[in-house]
Design a protein around this nucleic acid. Structure first.
Length: 332
DNA sequence: GACGCGTGGCC
DNA sequence: TGGCCAAGCGT
């Protein structure tokens, strides 16, 4: 197996289900069949191919890592753990996956599946949400992994976790390891793995300002290069308090601050959208505005553009923005 | 070491 | 509906 393709697939599979990844993976390797192709691509184009897959820093870090390998290692992915771990976007899991699957080295690739399976078999009580716990499992895997069969061992362990040793309802009857599973013998399968609870998402209310100029073009702006949805384009968002009576005033204030006084015909959309992130919960109101003819708003030094509706498909938009477009009845 | 970082599926 | 879940990594 080509280590580069292993790398791409393992990065895509981080915190993401196989069925979701497959179409993205196929499209991605078609566009970027070699590390040189990915290294040379514009970052915004790479983001466009990652659009909808989530955790977009993975895409930026993957490209940054590929550029490192092309420049520093003559496009040969390192085959030792220490060097691999210094490559952007490659952590302990991905390093182990590349080493075992692509290079047949007996190295652990400990992910959530592996920790769930092993915590049940050996009744390990450490909290798997703690970063330190992964090392415990890596040490355990070193004692278990066969010298000459590391790839099937690692992949089999993950596959077992995904299909049989599932979080809620483990299929112990079908499990080939049930005879040596300590949690099973104690009847405590679902007590493992031990996991501390995570906090509830913080709610934030926004109004999305969908503005068209007198030529029918839309105003979009680019998010900062770091942080949530970094680098993506969006219809400008203004944070508001929970009360809906400040939806239109907030939109008007945004326009005032951006362009100064403008004559605009506004309409407030009845329909609202919600988007849940792992740590945030967005409530989205949508306001549409049309600049009355004869006025040509100029843009300040902000990362904003006026673009035609037909150009929207060329820009990467995250899912919450796609929901806004649906409410505003914009084809995308 | 704690926290920030997406999305879709499932019950 | 809301909470939980999924093949983690960078800061």
């Amino acid at each position: 197996m080509d280590p580069y393709y292993i790398w791409i697939s393992e990065v895509m599979l981080q915190q993401t289900q196989v069925d979701t990844v497959i179409p993205y993976y196929e499209k991605f390797i078609t566009h970027y069949p070699t590390m040189h192709a990915l290294a040379q691509a514009p970052q915004e184009e790479v983001l466009k191919h990652w659009e909808g897959l989530g955790y977009y820093s993975r895409a930026r870090n993957l490209q940054a890592g590929v550029r490192e390998v092309v420049e520093n290692y003559d496009a040969q992915i390192p085959s030792d753990r220490k060097t691999l771990l210094n490559v952007k976007g490659i952590g302990p899991y991905t390093a182990g996956a590349i080493l075992s699957i692509a290079y047949q080295k007996p190295e652990p690739a400990v992910d959530g599946n592996v920790m769930r399976v092993l915590s049940r078999i050996f009744q390990i009580d450490e909290d798997i949400t703690k970063a330190k716990t992964r090392k415990t499992f890596e040490q355990l895997v070193y004692t278990l992994i066969p010298e000459d069969d590391a790839s099937p061992f690692n992949q089999g362990l993950m596959e077992l976790g995904a299909l049989i040793c599932k979080p809620k309802t483990p299929l112990c009857e079908a499990c080939p390891l049930s005879h040596l599973c300590q949690a099973r013998q104690a009847g405590k399968q679902t007590d493992y793995p031990v996991k501390s609870k995570k906090l509830k998402q913080k709610g934030i209310h926004y109004v999305a300002v969908v503005l068209q100029d007198d030529q029918g073009r839309y105003l979009i702006q680019q998010r900062p290069s770091e942080g949530l949805l970094a680098g993506f384009w969006e219809f400008p968002l203004q944070e508001i308090s929970a009360s809906t009576d400040e939806v239109l005033p907030s939109a008007e204030q945004f326009i005032e601050e951006t362009f100064g006084t403008l004559s605009i015909k506004w309409s407030v959309c009845e329909e609202t959208a919600q988007h849940i992130f792992s740590h945030l919960k967005w409530q989205l109101n949508v306001v549409q505005g049309k600049v009355l003819s004869g006025q040509v708003p100029s843009l300040q030094e902000k990362p904003m553009r006026w673009i035609a509706e037909t150009e929207l498909k060329d820009y990467p938009f995250p899912v919450p923005q796609q929901k806004i477009m649906k409410i505003a009845r914009i084809a995308y």
